[in-house]
């Protein structure tokens, strides 16, 4: 067991936990905007952690530089995609779920 293996396993298990909570949130939360909370945040950090774990496992080469490039790209693109789609819903006047009118929808 090397040190980098341990670090990699820790990162991967953390990211798997976050992926699981994001998926649970996608299934359980009541409406579209709250589901976006789960996927938009959970997937970003989970993907970043697993990319970091893979980069540590692979060592310092040009390939791990590419992995870090994917991480930067996801860090920029994932919130933007979340924003774009929530903006489309907002412009289409999708009514958000509130506590007051809890039961309906």
């Amino acid at each position: 067991m090397l040190v980098k293996d341990v670090i990699c396993i820790l990162f991967m298990l953390g990211s798997f936990f976050l992926f699981t909570t994001a998926t649970l949130g996608l299934l359980r939360l009541p409406d579209f905007f709250t589901r976006l909370h789960a996927t938009g945040k959970g997937d970003t950090l989970a993907a970043l952690w697993s990319l970091a774990g893979l980069a540590v496992y692979h060592g310092f080469t040009l390939t791990s530089a590419k992995i870090l490039f994917i991480a930067v790209f996801l860090f920029l693109a994932q919130p933007t995609a979340t924003h774009a789609i929530s903006r489309a819903a907002f412009r289409c006047k999708v009514q958000p779920w509130t506590l007051a009118k809890g039961g309906e929808k």
């Binding site: 579209f32 589901r35 996927t39 993907a47 697993s50 996801l74």
Partner: peptide, 20 residues
């Protein structure tokens, strides 16, 4: 919209599966 959210979540997971 819900479908789009689900599919973009699938996309992120597929990325990680490909790397694995």
């Amino acid at each position: 919209l819900n479908r789009a959210a689900g599919i973009s979540a699938i996309g992120t997971k597929t990325l990680i599966i490909l790397l694995l």
